[in-house]
């Protein structure tokens, strides 16, 4: 079933602010096995010029993916969520996410395409600080595999 093209360009309201904590960053860094001291040691992070510990590059996805999920689960869009797989993922950083950040995500559907029966959705999340400055732009390509028999 073709998706409703009128959703292209649609921007969803900003998410509830997420406060980035030092211990959450530590937990994430330990989960990926990364012992870079910039993630856990404030002095080491400061020596690199950061005001506090920073988060590993992909940490921000754990903030944005819930928003993306909300967008693609919108029943009016008509996407079969059970068939969705993550196609591409891209981040553009203005600066690293760090402890103390209060971040809000604004999601936009950038494009909807149909390729070989698959629905392909590009969603952009602008991750902003309270002043409205973008910290990271997160682009996710989601592919809903064609249902059998279609």
């Amino acid at each position: 079933m073709a998706l409703d093209q009128s959703f292209v360009g649609r921007t969803y309201p900003p998410s509830r602010p997420y406060e980035v904590g030092r211990e959450k960053i530590r937990e994430f860094a330990e989960a990926i096995g990364d012992d870079n001291p910039a993630y856990t040691d404030v002095e080491a992070a400061k020596a690199l010029g950061h005001p506090d510990v920073i988060a590993p590059p992909t940490f921000v996805f754990s903030i944005t993916f819930r928003e993306v999920e909300q967008v693609v689960r919108d029943p009016k869009l008509g996407l079969d969520w059970s068939r969705v797989v993550h196609g591409d993922q891209r981040f553009v950083y203005r600066r690293p996410v760090r402890a103390g950040d209060v971040l809000s995500v604004t999601s936009t559907i950038e494009s909807i395409k149909s390729l070989a029966g698959n629905d392909v959705l590009d969603v952009r999340g602008e991750v902003r600080d309270p002043s409205g400055e973008t910290v990271v732009t997160v682009r996710s390509k989601l592919v809903a595999r064609a249902a059998e028999g279609e």
């Binding site: 993630y39 590059p57 993550h86 591409d88 993922q89 891209r90 950083y93 682009r139």
Partner: peptide, 12 residues
């Protein structure tokens, strides 16, 4: 310094 990263993208 992980903060040196400006862009990062992959295809799964």
């Amino acid at each position: 310094d992980p903060g040196a990263l400006v862009e990062y993208g992959v295809r799964f």
